[in-house]
Amino acid sequence: MTFKLIINGKTLKGETTTEAVDAATAEKVFKQYANDNGLDGEWTYDDATKTFTITE
């Protein structure tokens, strides 16, 4: 399955995708991506669209 991450950061904005077997796996990938890029914010997830959002 394809999951999307929408980034609404103070300095970084955009989106990225990952292929994962489930939402929990995708969340780990996206949280590592956010950590690697210095993002810290509030996370939301929409199961209907398989989309995570981080807002700083």
Score class of each variant (00 low, 15 high):
23 A>M: 07
26 A>Y: 00
12 L>Y: 12
1 M>F: 07
10 K>W: 08
54 I>G: 01
12 L>V: 10
55 T>Y: 05
37 N>F: 06
22 D>S: 07
43 W>N: 00
55 T>Q: 09
8 N>V: 15
32 Q>C: 04
34 A>N: 02
43 W>R: 01
53 T>N: 04
38 G>A: 15
36 D>I: 11
34 A>Y: 03
5 L>C: 04
41 G>D: 02
15 E>N: 02
21 V>Y: 06
27 E>R: 11
22 D>Q: 03
19 E>Q: 11
3 F>V: 01
41 G>C: 03
14 G>N: 15
3 F>C: 01
51 T>G: 02
41 G>N: 01
27 E>F: 11
18 T>P: 01
4 K>C: 04
21 V>H: 14
11 T>N: 14
54 I>W: 04
47 D>H: 08
28 K>G: 09
17 T>P: 02
11 T>M: 11
38 G>R: 09
50 K>D: 03
33 Y>I: 10
23 A>F: 11
45 Y>Q: 01
55 T>F: 09
51 T>P: 00
9 G>K: 15
45 Y>D: 00
28 K>N: 06
12 L>P: 02
1 M>C: 05
37 N>L: 11
55 T>K: 09
23 A>D: 05
9 G>A: 06
55 T>R: 11
17 T>A: 08
50 K>W: 07
17 T>L: 15
26 A>D: 00
29 V>W: 12
8 N>L: 13
27 E>Y: 14
35 N>R: 14
21 V>D: 12
41 G>K: 01
28 K>D: 11
21 V>L: 10
47 D>V: 13
38 G>Y: 11
2 T>R: 12
11 T>I: 11
44 T>C: 04
46 D>P: 00
21 V>C: 04
25 T>E: 13
17 T>Y: 12
53 T>F: 05
6 I>H: 07
54 I>P: 01
47 D>F: 08
22 D>T: 10
41 G>S: 02
43 W>K: 00
29 V>M: 12
35 N>H: 14
5 L>H: 00
36 D>H: 14
2 T>H: 12
8 N>M: 15
37 N>G: 04
45 Y>A: 01
8 N>S: 10
44 T>K: 10
29 V>N: 07
29 V>F: 10
41 G>V: 03
14 G>F: 15
18 T>D: 02
47 D>I: 07
9 G>S: 12
18 T>R: 08
23 A>K: 12
46 D>I: 12
38 G>W: 05
52 F>H: 02
39 L>H: 06
1 M>W: 10
20 A>G: 05
35 N>Y: 11
41 G>A: 03
26 A>R: 00
46 D>N: 12
8 N>C: 04
19 E>C: 06
42 E>I: 09
41 G>M: 03
10 K>L: 08
36 D>L: 14
43 W>G: 01
41 G>Y: 05
26 A>C: 02
46 D>Y: 05
24 A>L: 11
48 A>K: 15
9 G>M: 15
45 Y>M: 02
33 Y>T: 03
23 A>T: 12
15 E>I: 03
22 D>F: 04
16 T>L: 12
29 V>H: 07
42 E>L: 10
37 N>K: 11
33 Y>C: 03
7 I>S: 04
45 Y>V: 02
54 I>N: 01
14 G>R: 12
2 T>C: 05
50 K>Q: 07
29 V>G: 05
6 I>R: 09
39 L>P: 02
5 L>A: 02
53 T>M: 06
36 D>P: 01
27 E>K: 10
46 D>R: 04
49 T>H: 15
12 L>R: 03
23 A>C: 05
49 T>K: 06
45 Y>P: 00
31 K>L: 07
12 L>G: 13
17 T>C: 04
7 I>A: 04
26 A>K: 00
52 F>R: 00
31 K>P: 00
40 D>L: 09
40 D>M: 06
37 N>T: 08
21 V>S: 14
47 D>A: 13
51 T>D: 01
31 K>C: 03
28 K>M: 15
10 K>R: 13
18 T>L: 09
30 F>Y: 03
52 F>T: 01
54 I>H: 02
43 W>Q: 01
49 T>L: 09
19 E>F: 09
6 I>W: 07
16 T>R: 11
10 K>T: 14
17 T>V: 09
11 T>G: 08
13 K>Q: 13
20 A>C: 05
13 K>Y: 15
25 T>V: 06
14 G>S: 10
39 L>Q: 04
2 T>L: 15
55 T>S: 08
55 T>V: 06
6 I>M: 07
46 D>W: 03
39 L>G: 02
32 Q>A: 09
48 A>S: 12
11 T>A: 12
35 N>T: 10
37 N>D: 03
9 G>C: 05
34 A>S: 06
49 T>S: 10
10 K>H: 08
13 K>C: 06
10 K>P: 14
34 A>H: 01
25 T>D: 12
44 T>S: 11
18 T>H: 13
50 K>I: 03
49 T>F: 12
30 F>H: 01
44 T>Y: 14
19 E>M: 11
21 V>P: 13
9 G>I: 07
36 D>S: 09
35 N>I: 14
15 E>Q: 05
16 T>N: 07
7 I>N: 02
40 D>K: 12
49 T>E: 09
13 K>R: 08
16 T>D: 05
46 D>E: 08
32 Q>S: 08
5 L>S: 00
23 A>Q: 07
48 A>I: 08
45 Y>H: 02
15 E>H: 05
43 W>P: 02
1 M>E: 15
10 K>F: 13
39 L>V: 10
44 T>G: 13
40 D>P: 05
36 D>Y: 06
1 M>D: 11
15 E>P: 02
52 F>M: 02
42 E>C: 05
29 V>I: 11
5 L>F: 07
50 K>G: 10
24 A>I: 12
40 D>N: 12
24 A>T: 11
36 D>V: 12
18 T>Y: 07
22 D>G: 04
40 D>F: 10
42 E>S: 13
51 T>S: 12
49 T>Q: 11
42 E>G: 09
50 K>P: 01
33 Y>E: 02
1 M>Y: 06
13 K>G: 12
52 F>C: 01
56 E>P: 04
32 Q>Y: 06
40 D>T: 12
19 E>L: 07
8 N>P: 03
53 T>D: 03
4 K>I: 08
30 F>G: 00
48 A>R: 13
34 A>M: 08
30 F>T: 00
33 Y>F: 13
34 A>F: 03
53 T>H: 05
34 A>V: 15
9 G>R: 09
37 N>E: 11
6 I>Q: 06
33 Y>H: 05
1 M>A: 14
28 K>W: 13
2 T>S: 07
25 T>K: 06
17 T>Q: 12
22 D>N: 10
56 E>F: 05
47 D>N: 13
7 I>M: 13
46 D>T: 07
48 A>Q: 09
54 I>E: 00
21 V>K: 10
20 A>M: 03
4 K>H: 15
11 T>F: 15
14 G>W: 13
48 A>C: 05
31 K>F: 05
14 G>H: 10
55 T>I: 06
7 I>G: 02
50 K>N: 10
48 A>M: 08
52 F>E: 00
25 T>M: 13
29 V>C: 05
31 K>Q: 13
20 A>V: 07
45 Y>K: 01
53 T>K: 05
17 T>D: 09
10 K>S: 07
25 T>N: 08
53 T>E: 06
42 E>T: 15
4 K>E: 03
21 V>R: 10
9 G>E: 04
38 G>M: 13
46 D>M: 08
17 T>M: 07
9 G>V: 15
1 M>L: 09
20 A>S: 13
27 E>Q: 12
19 E>A: 10
5 L>Y: 01
32 Q>D: 11
50 K>C: 04
14 G>Y: 08
5 L>Q: 00
39 L>Y: 04
15 E>L: 02
31 K>W: 09
22 D>I: 03
49 T>N: 15
54 I>K: 01
25 T>W: 12
7 I>T: 06
15 E>G: 03
35 N>W: 07
7 I>F: 15
19 E>G: 07
13 K>F: 14
15 E>F: 09
11 T>D: 15
